[in-house]
Amino acid sequence: ELELEEVDLYRMNSQDKLGLTVCYRTDDEDDIGIYISEIDPNSIAAKDGRIREGDRIIQINGIEVQNREEAVALLTSEENKNFSLLIARP
Rank of each mutant, 00 (worst) to 15 (best):
Y35L: 12
Q15Y: 09
K47L: 12
I63K: 05
I44Y: 03
E79P: 08
V7K: 00
Y35H: 14
V7I: 11
F83K: 05
E64L: 04
P41V: 10
L9V: 04
E78V: 08
E79Y: 13
L20H: 00
D31L: 13
R25A: 08
S14A: 14
L75W: 03
D27P: 04
S77L: 08
D48M: 02
E38G: 04
K81Q: 04
M12I: 06
K47S: 12
L20Y: 01
I39E: 00
E6C: 05
V22S: 03
P90F: 02
L4C: 05
I87E: 01
E53Y: 06
I57M: 09
I36P: 00
D27S: 11
I51D: 00
T21V: 03
G49I: 04
I57L: 08
E3M: 13
N42R: 14
N42L: 08
Q15A: 08
E6V: 06
A73L: 10
E38Y: 06
L9S: 00
I44N: 05
E29N: 15
L20W: 02
G62K: 09
I44H: 05
R68T: 13
Q66E: 14
D8R: 14
S84K: 13
L2S: 14
E64H: 04
D8Q: 02
I39T: 02
S14Q: 04
L18T: 03
E6Y: 03
V22L: 12
R56Y: 11
E69A: 06
I44S: 04
R52Y: 10
L9C: 02
G49T: 11
R56L: 12
A71T: 12
V65N: 05
D31H: 12
I60P: 00
N42S: 10
A46N: 02
E78P: 05
G49W: 02
D30S: 09
D55F: 03
E5L: 14
R25S: 07
F83W: 06
A71V: 08
I87P: 01
T21M: 06
L75F: 07
E3I: 15
I60N: 01
T26G: 06
D30W: 03
D48S: 10
I51W: 01
N82P: 04
R11E: 02
I51E: 00
Y10C: 12
I63R: 09
E69W: 05
M12E: 06
A71N: 02
L4W: 06
E5C: 09
L4H: 06
Y24T: 11
I57Y: 00
E78A: 10
R50F: 02
G54I: 00
S84V: 06
L4P: 11
I39F: 02
N82D: 07
V65Y: 05
I87C: 13
E29Y: 07
P90K: 08
I36M: 02
R89S: 12
G54P: 01
E1S: 06
T21Q: 08
A88M: 03
Q66I: 13
R68I: 09
A71F: 05
R68H: 15
K47G: 14
L20E: 00
Q59E: 15
L86M: 07
G54V: 00
N61P: 01
T76V: 07
E70W: 03
T76D: 08
L85Q: 00
I60H: 01
V72Q: 13
G19R: 00
I57G: 00
L75R: 01
A45I: 03
S43R: 03
I36S: 01
Q15M: 11
P90A: 04
Q59K: 15
D48N: 11
I32Q: 15
E29Q: 10
E79L: 08
M12A: 07
D48V: 03
R68E: 06
G62N: 14
A45T: 10
C23W: 06
I63C: 08
T21D: 02
G54C: 03
E64F: 01
I39S: 01
G49D: 13
I58D: 07
E64V: 05
D28M: 06
L2T: 10
I60V: 08
T21N: 10
S37R: 09
L75P: 01
I36E: 00
L74T: 06
L74H: 12
E29L: 09
G33P: 08
E79A: 07
K47P: 02
G49H: 09
E78Y: 09
N82R: 08
Y24D: 14
Q66N: 14
P41W: 08
E69N: 04
M12T: 13
L75A: 02
C23R: 13
Y10I: 13
L86C: 13
S37L: 08
N42A: 14
R56G: 08
D27H: 07
L9T: 01
R25E: 07
N13M: 04
Y10G: 15
L9G: 00
V22C: 06
K81C: 07
P41L: 08
S77Q: 11
V72S: 11
N61Q: 08
K81N: 06
D31V: 08
E70S: 10
E64W: 01
P90H: 04
E53T: 07
N67K: 11
L74K: 04
V65A: 15
N61L: 02
V7S: 00
I44E: 03
L74G: 05
L75I: 10
N67S: 10
G62S: 12
D40Q: 13
K81S: 08
I44G: 03
N67H: 05
D55H: 07
I34W: 10
E29M: 09
G49P: 14
D27K: 04
A45F: 02
T21S: 09
D8I: 03
R56V: 06
L20V: 11
E3W: 04
S14K: 14
D16Y: 06
I51L: 07
Q66L: 14
I44P: 07
P41C: 15
K81H: 08
N82S: 08
S37K: 10
L2Q: 08
R50Q: 12
G54T: 05
V72F: 07
T26M: 15
Y24C: 15
A73M: 13
G33T: 14
N82V: 10
D16T: 12
V22P: 10
I32F: 02
S14W: 04
Y24I: 14
E79I: 10
A73P: 05
A71K: 01
L9E: 00
E38L: 12
T26N: 15
A73F: 06
V65G: 04
Q66D: 15
I34Y: 13
L4N: 03
E1H: 04
A71M: 04
D28P: 11
A46P: 01
R50P: 00
Y10E: 15
I57Q: 00
Y10A: 10
D31M: 10
S37P: 02
V65C: 14
A73Q: 05
C23E: 09
P41A: 10
K81F: 11
E64M: 03
I58A: 09
V22Y: 08
I60K: 01
M12W: 13
I57F: 02
N67E: 12
A71C: 11
R68N: 08
A45H: 01
E69T: 09
L75E: 01
D55S: 11
G62P: 00
R25H: 14
R56W: 06
D27Q: 11
Y35Q: 15
R11M: 06
E78G: 12
L86Y: 04
C23A: 08
R52E: 15
N13W: 05
R68L: 13
D55Y: 03
V72A: 10
S77D: 11
E69F: 06
D55R: 01
F83Y: 06
E79F: 12
E53M: 05
E29R: 13
Y35F: 15
E3C: 11
L9N: 01
L4R: 13
R89A: 04
R68F: 13
S77R: 11
L18K: 00
D8V: 14
N67P: 03
L85A: 02
I57H: 00
D8C: 04
E1A: 03
I39D: 01
